[in-house]
């Protein structure tokens, strides 16, 4: 049980590092990486709960596989959009992408 607590501590820390990174960084690629950190924290959570608490069914494991797949799809679309942005603004810094305000 203490093992599980230890891993959960890591996953919670990872998640909030991701949140912090998303909110403070202004480079869009870095923001995307912060989101991936958050998703990985979720993956760890699912696996840990599945292994230590509900080992008889594999719900958490399957959820993790789907999250990994969808995160890949999401990253693909996000990077395509960011490349499109870079072509138009010559920058991927959120502070310089500012034609839309208030």
């Amino acid at each position: 049980m203490s093992e599980m607590k230890f891993i959960l501590l890591i996953s919670f820390a990872l998640f909030f590092i991701g949140v912090y990174g998303f909110l403070t960084r202004r480079n869009m690629i870095t923001m995307l990486m912060a989101v991936e950190l958050m998703l990985n924290a979720v993956n760890i959570n699912f696996i840990v709960f599945n292994k230590f608490l509900y080992a008889e069914k594999m719900d958490g494991l399957f959820f993790t596989i789907f999250i990994i797949t969808i995160a890949a799809a999401e990253a693909a679309v996000a990077i395509a959009i960011i490349i499109n942005l870079y072509r138009k603004f010559n920058s991927i810094n959120e502070n310089e992408i500012d034609t839309l305000k208030w």
């Binding site: 869009m28 923001m31 995307l32 959009i81 960011i82 942005l85 138009k88 603004f89 839309l100």
Partner: peptide
């Protein structure tokens, strides 16, 4: 140019 910007903001915040 605004269309690209709106999409960028949308994909990041929805992710």
């Amino acid at each position: 140019i605004k269309s690209a910007e709106g999409a960028g903001k949308m994909i990041l915040s929805s992710a």
